[in-house]
Structure formats: structure tokens, C-alpha cells
Design a protein around this nucleic acid. Structure first.
Lengths: 353, 353
DNA sequence: CGACCTATTGATCGGACTCAAGGTTGGTGG
DNA sequence: CCACCAACCTTGAGTCCGATCAATAGGTCG
């Protein structure tokens, strides 16, 4: 059961509203002024806060400010209740970070709609945060319920891409963002001598190249299908509109990007000082993490030696020598192009050294 | 002069409002329905759109949707005008990405306040985007006018840090985010063999370590003063609240992070395949970019060879040998610990090869 | 089944790391 | 103010990792 904190100084109003909420099967915490409200919020961490603006002791803005300063309560949805006369103040409240407002007197349906909408959104938001970086669309899928996302899912044009086909080149203007429906895609950069370095591996449910989209609309890397793929092309305006207009999506994005930066930094450290052997171990783990079949996880991954070398950032021959060593040590097994991890611990040891 | 697009089907209302705006010295484009409004918006790209909800041909939501799909108009502030009876609809509008709403009838002051607030914000937003990544606070400074930021500027506790003093270690919980008031700071990671790799150089006006803050509240790197510094400690709640609650700040952040990811990818490519010589050239340029005195730009930068080596990601001795070569070739000059660039072009050539 | 691509192994070479030793610089305390 | 110490810079020699070139074996696809 969801808990709602109701902060309202007028006793009638408070009891009335509380009753409506309880009938709708919410647990209601009642506070008669802002100070008490903040105390309750800190102690109980409600799922949502309804708060009057004009109050003795500590007014609605004060409450919002206090809750915003504490990480535990900062993300709790906050809805203002305001009398008609305070219309100008509501705007101030929204600017301070309230999520919504209701003008008194309000209908029961109006109240419940606002609450439900916010709770749904907030839950989505929180759940999304637990997942890792790469599956933006796992989030997107969950979000399907959101009005804002409906349009993106609809009228998708999908197309096939053959193995080795290039989806876009570095420097291309990205009018559409590819979204991988099935298959595997790698993104890479090419240095002035023509050597490739793989910057990302993507699978079902990933968007590709949005980084460049955010930078200046041009791709910062080249994307190529590793096998036959099905991709949907999402008009960039749709993605941008979603990102710009929806706060929850923005914040989710920030976390994802921050995570990505952190990973890249880790990678830099590795590349700077680790031997090819260590980097190979690391790369094997990463590739398996990303592409291993879920059902039969150690069944192996099929990847060309050249591609793997580009992930590690070394010459193909060096990579192969290293694989041979690992094979002899019993850490991995190969069958033609497939590579299977036999001793994960061993690889992890190597990678972290 | 700012241009405002007013979309309103009621002729009286339209003329009245337009008059108010013209008196306040705005240029006003008038449209009598949504379809005409979208056309005008595309042709003229106004600075702000005022739009009624209920209209023939294409209603307010439609207009918002159409404008949102076009990059040129997506970022134009959008304010709904709604009759009282449409109160429920307003919420829908805000969810679709409108920036504000006004309930008819409105006061002149109410209208002008809403418009001015939005314009100011939007300009700030756009200006901020042109700058590079590192000076988050250049943005912050410009933003000083924003209500939301007032509190961050105020009651700063600042403290001195001595040369070589550690501001925080990798893994520390970051309760306060250091903000560099004066001096230079480097951030670095340490690998398992104790070698350091510099991930960032920071100077006046930079926040440090916010990446970790976004990830899980723990620092992902170590920060150390390169010289005597003055730092302000910003409570992380303040920064997070700002980030979470203010859409413009969120989006700005996204762009910054995307830029950072791009740079790190570039760096990875370099590190993977470029020789020490090339990387040294690159690092010299970067360090000068970041720390050279503005007044006398080629006066040189003072940095220990060890630190520079950690930036390049090589051994101190290798770095020194490389510096010696560059000196002999006339690309740089050294005086004790200072390094001065003599031939920038030459270095750039080297770096890009 | 044959042409072509990819994987593997060998031999060689060079760049960069390590260890070692001597020269400079800068700061501190008498 | 000067001497001395410690930290830092610089150079040399030796070694090793990994890149390159070359040649062969193994798979794959038309």
C-alpha cells in the first residue's frame, strides 16, 4: 500500500482529503503544519507528498526546500494544494521543483488522477535506475505506459542490415537514430592510420549513436552490423523531444551518461598501463557479458579475431597468441570462431591484476 | 527585439493580448488557428509561443506536438493560454512539454512576468550550450540570476588546500562537492600496481567529482591539489536538488556529459594505437589549453614531469626523452620546470598523426 | 570444388619500460 | 645568507613486450 503525506493546516480540508485518499486505499499521514510535515516525511519517507502553500510555522515552499535538501526525500513526488487566490504563487512553487499542483477546491477524480499519475511515473523512474547502462530501451519498454513515449513506439519503420553493413559513418548527420531490434552491432572509431578501435557493442534493445546526436547532430563513430540485424529508425526529433521535455527521462539519461564516463575512465586506466594479456581477459569478460546466450550462458560467443583485437586495442596476431596461451592454461576453449569461457575466475583474476 | 507568436482563435482576446505585448515592446506575430500558427513558427522561429488550447483546425496540443518534432522550434518556450473550464487539460499540456500556462482571464503583469521569466531562462540555456565542457561554473555564474541557484552561491564555506593535499580519495563518500575558487587540481585513478593515470585537470570555476556523485555517491577517482588552492564545499544535496528539479540544468548537464564521453572515446583511440611521442604532443596541447595564463598565453606551464607522464600514461623517463627530442626539434622550450610551446603547429601535426 | 577470407604460427625488429646513476633545483634551518 | 638535504630531472644500458612481415593451415561461400 502506498503512503501519502498530507500537510494541510485547515482541519476540515485535511480530514476531507484524507478520507478521499483512504477510500482509494492509500495510507495517509496527516500533518497540521509544515514543520510537523517535514518531521513525518523524514521519519516515514512517504511515496508522495500533498502540501498546502499557506501554513503557520513553515509554509509549503519551506517544506519543499527542506525535503529537496535530503537525498532520501528529494525524489518523492511533491504536489502543492493551493487556494485560488494564490495562483501566482503556484508558478513559484513549480519553479522550485514541485511536480504538480491542485487548485482548491478540487474534485475527487482530479486529486486521484494527479496522484496516480505521479506515483506511476516515480516508480518507473526509480525502477529504471537499477539497471545498467546499455539497455536504454529496457527502460523505454517499461516506460511504454507514459504518454510521452507512445509516439516513439508507433509507426516504426524497420529495415534489415546485412552482416558487415555500415549503419552510419563517423561524421554523418544523424537524422534517424538506429534502434536494434535483433542482431549485434559494433561502433568504432578509426585512427589516421586506418586502425579501428571498438568503442561499443550493442544488441537487442539498444539505441546507437545518440551520443553524437547530443553533441552536434553528427555521428562521432561508425556503426557496423556484426551479423544480420533488424533495426528500427527513430526520427531524431522524437528522441530529442522526449529527452528535452520529460524530466524523468532527462535524469535517467544523466545517470546513464555518468556511468558511461566512469566506465570509459576505467578503460583508459587499463589501456594506459595494463598488458595485452590483461586487456584480453577483460575484453573476453565484457564480450561474454554482453553477448552470451542467456539460456546457455557459457555456450560461447562467436566473434572474429580481428574484431576482438579491435576491442582490446592490439594487433590481431598478438591477440591470437594471447588466446592460445589462455587456451593452454585452461581458462578458455575455442571451436572455430567460437570462444567459450571455462574458468571465469581465472580471467577475472587476470583482468584485475 | 524579441518576437512572440500568439496563437488564439478569439479575435478580441487576440487583439487585446497582442496590444499588451506590443506596449511592452515585443514584436507580435498573430495566428488565428493552430495550423497557421505552426506555419508562422516554422517560417519565423519566434522567441516564445503563446497558444490557446481550444481552437479550430489544430488545437494547442497539436501545435505543441508539431513544434516539438522540429529541432528548430523544439526549444522555443511554449506557454499555454487556457480558459478556466479547461483546468484538467492544462495538466495534460504540461506533461506534453509546455513550459508554463496562464489561465484566462489574466492580468497584464501576470502575462509579462511569465514571458520574461521564460525568455530569460531560455536565453541562458542557449548561451550555455556554446561553451565547452570543463567550465560548468561559467554556466553556473551566468545562471546566478536563476532563483534555483541563489542558494548554492550563498553561505559557501571555503577552505585552503595545500600543494599535494588530497581533496578526496577514490571510494570516499562525497558529502560535499569541491568547487575550485582558485588554483589547480588534478583527478586521477590508480591501478593495482600503484601507477597513476590522470583523468582530469581542473581550474578556477570547476566542480570536481560530480561524476561519482551521480553514479552512487562515491568518488570514482582521487583529487589532489597541484598547487595551493582555495575550494568551496557545496553540499551535494544542493547540487542534486538543482540537477533534479531544474530542467534546463539537466539538459545542459546531458550535453556536457555527452561531450565528455566523446572526448574520452577520442582519448581511448589515441591511447590504443598512438605512440608515446604523439600522446605527449597531445597532452602538451591539452595542458596548455587548460592552464596557460590568458594574458601571456605562451608564457609556459609549470608541471612536474611525473604528473605529465601520468597524463600521457607512460613512464617518467620515456616522457623526458620525448620532451628532449621535441626541444631539439624546436617545438618546445623548457626552463627548469616550465614548459613553453614554441611551435604549436608542429605539435598539432604530431598529435593528429 | 576452388577462390578467398580468416586463423595461426614463426621470426624479427623496435619502442617503451625498468633499473641505475649522476646532475639540478628549490626549500629549510642553522 | 649560505650550506645541505631531499625531491626532482636527465641520461645511459639492458630487456622485454608487442607490432610487423611472411608463410601456412583451416573454413566458408558461391
Amino acid at each position: 500500500m502506498k503512503t501519502i503525506l498530507l500537510i494541510e493546516d485547515d482541519a476540515d480540508m485535511r480530514e476531507n482529503t484524507a478520507e478521499m485518499l483512504e477510500l482509494a486505499d492509500y495510507r495517509v499521514l496527516k500533518a497540521e503544519n509544515g514543520k510537523r510535515g517535514v518531521e513525518l516525511a523524514r521519519k516515514e519517507t512517504p511515496d508522495l507528498v500533498l502540501c498546502d502553500i499557506m501554513m503557520p510555522e513553515l509554509d509549503g515552499y519551506g517544506v519543499l526546500h527542506m525535503l529537496g535538501r535530503n537525498p532520501a526525500t528529494a525524489e518523492v513526488p511533491f504536489i502543492f494544494l493551493s487556494a485560488k487566490a494564490e495562483r501566482g504563487d503556484v508558478r513559484k512553487g513549480m519553479e522550485m521543483g514541485a511536480d504538480d499542483y491542485l487548485t482548491k477546491p478540487f474534485e475527487e477524480s482530479e486529486l486521484l488522477n494527479a496522484i496516480e499519475g505521479r506515483l506511476k511515473r516515480s516508480e518507473l523512474f526509480r525502477r529504471g535506475f537499477d539497471h545498467g547502462f546499455e539497455g536504454l530501451t529496457k527502460f523505454m519498454e517499461q516506460a511504454r505506459g507514459l504518454e510521452a513515449l507512445k509516439n516513439i513506439g508507433r509507426d516504426r519503420r524497420t529495415r534489415k542490415a546485412e552482416k558487415k553493413e555500415t549503419l552510419f559513418h563517423e561524421g554523418d548527420e544523424l537524422r534517424n537514430i538506429p534502434f536494434v531490434v535483433s542482431g549485434k552491432v559494433r561502433t568504432f572509431k578509426i585512427n589516421s592510420e586506418g586502425k579501428e578501435f571498438v568503442t561499443g557493442l550493442h544488441g537487442t534493445g539498444d539505441f546507437i549513436g545518440y551520443m553524437g546526436l547530443l553533441e552536434n547532430g553528427h555521428a562521432t563513430e561508425t556503426a557496423e552490423a556484426l551479423e544480420e540485424c533488424e533495426v528500427a529508425l527513430i526520427p531524431r526529433e522524437d528522441l530529442l523531444a522526449l529527452l528535452y521535455k520529460d524530466r524523468d527521462v532527462s535524469i535517467r539519461f544523466i545517470k546513464m551518461l555518468a556511468h558511461d564516463v566512469k566506465e570509459k575512465e576505467q578503460h583508459l586506466l587499463q589501456l594506459a598501463y595494463a598488458s595485452v594479456r590483461q586487456r584480453v581477459a577483460q575484453a573476453l569478460l565484457r564480450v561474454h557479458e554482453r553477448y552470451a546466450q542467456e539460456k546457455d550462458r557459457d555456450l560461447g560467443v562467436r566473434i572474429s579475431r580481428e574484431d576482438l583485437a579491435a576491442i582490446v586495442g592490439t594487433a590481431t596476431e598478438s591477440l591470437i597468441r594471447c588466446l592460445t596461451d589462455l587456451k593452454e592454461e585452461g581458462a578458455i576453449e575455442t571451436q572455430g570462431r567460437d570462444i567459450r569461457i571455462k574458468d571465469r575466475n581465472r580471467l577475472e583474476d587476470l583482468a584485475s591484476t
